[in-house]
């Protein structure tokens, strides 16, 4: 009996979790300027508007550049940290790992403000996408470490040693033995970091300068009621893209778990 109530609660919880997102396509295909019920009829005109919007395209391009560079750099740093913590035990390890993981819980406004102060006041440099990339690498690295740690921890160090005994260089042993085993984890963490960076607004708003990323552009649209249906259409596409990216990440993560012969405990974190 109590178990049935629990299931009912969980179903309700999940429904509420998805409810706002479910509204997106409803209003994106709604043929009305105002985002409210009752609906006005079916229309694809908001999506059509997206194809011809130059400002939107350049914002999207900025976001893609930022997300690609940030995710690659964050994953490279993440590989270093995940392998160091899984393979070696050394003094100060806990403290250093703690420092690398701190951005996971730090309020994003603090990251945005502190990097802004360094760029603007200390270095006296103009803001721009490079500053957004620098900050996104910082906040994406802990997520990469979290995903990659699972992959590296389940590796048997004896396998790499065996390769070395058979004459491989340390790099060769890493490349031919370890890398293929953790490759799915790397792909998964790349996709997750890419998604985080693509969606990040709070930090980007502080650092983006004159060339806005996509979320900063959307923030600008939110001020104008006439642009809101476009935001709905854009949001629908972004949610679809995120779901596709994360599903791919999850598939790769599971493949990695299977390849390493590890029991799948599930979850990104």
């Amino acid at each position: 009996m109590s178990r049935r109530w629990l299931l009912l609660y969980v179903v309700l919880y999940m429904a509420l979790l998805y409810a706002p997102i479910a509204l997106l396509p409803i209003f994106a295909f709604n043929d009305g300027q105002v985002i409210a019920f009752p609906l006005q009829g079916f229309s694809t005109r908001w999506f059509e508007g997206l194809w011809t919007n130059r400002t939107l395209h350049s914002a999207l391009w900025n976001s893609l550049v930022v997300a690609v560079i940030s995710s690659v750099l964050a994953v490279v740093l993440g590989i270093c940290a995940a392998r160091a913590s899984a393979r070696y035990a050394f003094r100060g390890q806990g403290a250093v790992m703690g420092m690398i993981m701190v951005p996971l819980v730090l309020p994003e406004i603090i990251v945005g403000v502190s990097v802004l102060i360094v760029v603007n006041t200390v270095l006296g440099l103009p803001l721009g996408l490079w500053a957004v990339i620098a900050a996104h690498v910082l906040i994406c690295t802990p997520f990469a470490v979290a995903v990659l740690s699972g992959a590296f921890q389940s590796l048997d160090p004896a396998m790499e040693e065996a390769a070395r005994d058979l004459g491989e260089t340390p790099w060769g042993a890493f490349r031919t033995v370890t890398l293929p085993l953790v490759a799915p984890g790397i792909v998964a963490s790349l996709l997750i970091c890419f998604t985080i960076s693509l969606d990040e607004f709070i930090i980007a708003f502080f650092l983006t300068g004159a060339s806005p990323t996509l979320p900063v552009y959307i923030w600008g649209l939110l001020r104008f009621p006439a642009d809101l249906p476009i935001v709905m259409a854009l949001g629908t596409l972004l949610v679809l893209a995120s779901i596709v990216l994360l599903t791919m990440a999850e598939i790769f993560r599971r493949r990695g778990a299977a390849r390493a012969g590890r029991k799948d405990s599930g979850g990104f974190l």
Binding site: L24, D199, I218, L246
Partner: peptide, 19 residues
């Protein structure tokens, strides 16, 4: 279990501003 966790985390990753 991992499918459930995946479904729970998805809304969290999707377009924060729009949400």
């Amino acid at each position: 279990k991992s499918l459930w966790l995946f479904l729970i985390t998805i809304p969290f990753w999707t377009s924060y501003l729009v949400r």
